[in-house]
């Protein structure tokens, strides 16, 4: 009896092998499955024989039966896997076709730089302030301690209106407005458009954007300024950027300082952009001139502070390696899409 069973199991396994090897479609596999393990399948038909096996042969028979069943099952699964793809082919997608995107826009690189600068200074406790672009001589020059015959006031360099007002040449005007409106302590940055009477070329325009900062309190010092600017430089350009401060002259600050960043192009080794000095002039800054404080009714004996200003386009050009200022106002879509 045992031998008969074993022979029949071998025969079913061989049949399964042939049937499944011949299967061309998923349907063929399912037919084969029915013939083998279905209700009337060849393997199913052998199950009753187990009852007739002698007691001592039962473990051997049971083991052989299970092995055959597993083998057939595995062959069916293998065949299903092999031919299964055609079963879902109607739903298949070309995953390399473009997705149905939500529309994507971009902020202008100048706005991006302004946003980033504001974000950095906000984290250091500054609040952003704004003001008008048409200004008075008082707010743009007088209150900022610019001498009456300072060249920056000249109509060669500054745009004027018939009524004597002007287009602001710097956003320091916002500092004056804030100091007149608010009692110290004051801690602001003011981004905005400034106008200079420059003939447009690759590095000049009739206007540019600036961000200026002002911090007035009882004990704000030049060391605070240095630390603030160092934090800005590394936040904006990365940890490898170093700064250095050089004494300079501006009417609205005393002491006045020019702040250089180590060249972001060459890492300070010297290149064309930094004129081989390893340094880039980025900022004018210093301690607010006591005369400026007096002009806005703040007592310089009690209050002191720093101010700084830098050009947004210059920062943007350095960050993105943009060589021509005019690209900013052309607004070519191929340019806007890059940032």
């Amino acid at each position: 009896m045992l031998n008969e069973l074993l022979a029949k199991l071998d025969a079913v396994t061989a049949e399964a092998k042939t049937l499944l090897a011949d299967a061309k479609t998923a349907a063929d596999v399912e037919n084969a499955k029915n013939k083998l393990t279905g209700r009337n399948g060849a393997l199913t038909a052998l199950a009753p024989m187990m009852g007739k096996i002698a007691k001592e042969d039962k473990p051997t028979a049971g083991k052989a039966f299970n092995e055959a069943k597993n083998t057939v099952q595995a062959m069916i699964e293998e065949a299903r896997e092999r031919l299964g793809a055609s079963k879902v082919s109607a739903e298949a997608v070309d995953v390399t076709l473009p997705g149905r995107r939500w529309p994507v826009g971009r902020k202008h690189p100048v706005s991006q730089t302004i946003d980033e600068c504001c974000a950095i200074f906000r984290r250091m406790g500054f609040v952003v302030a704004e003001g008008p672009e048409i200004e008075t001589v008082k707010n743009c020059f007088d209150a900022l301690n610019a001498p009456v015959d300072h060249p920056s006031r000249d109509p060669k360099d500054t745009f004027y209106f018939d009524d004597g007002r002007l287009l602001r040449t710097q956003t320091s005007t916002v500092q004056i407005r804030t100091m007149l409106a608010q009692k110290p302590p004051i801690r602001i940055v003011s981004p905005g458009r400034c106008f200079r009477r420059d003939t447009p070329d690759a590095t000049h325009g009739v206007h540019f954007h600036q961000i200026e900062g002002l911090y007035i309190d009882h004990d704000v010092s030049l060391a605070d300024l240095k630390s603030t600017l160092e934090a800005f430089a590394t936040e904006f350009f990365g940890d490898s950027v170093a700064i250095r401060m050089r004494p300079h002259f501006f009417p609205f600050t005393e002491p006045s300082v020019e702040c250089d960043f180590s060249c972001v192009m060459c890492g300070g080794k010297g290149c064309r952009v930094c004129k081989n000095s390893g340094w880039l002039e980025i900022l004018g800054c210093g301690m607010v001139n006591p005369n400026v404080l007096r002009n806005v009714g703040i007592n310089p004996e009690k209050w002191q502070g720093f101010a700084f200003g830098m050009g947004i386009e210059r920062l943007t050009m350095l960050k993105h390696r943009i060589g021509d200022l005019r690209l900013f106002s052309e607004n070519d879509l191929r340019f806007l899409k890059q940032f």
Binding site: G105, S111, H207, L336
Partner: peptide, 9 residues
């Protein structure tokens, strides 16, 4: 979905 422009004053 819009691109920002900055034009001259």
């Amino acid at each position: 979905g819009l691109y920002e422009c900055v034009n001259t004053s």
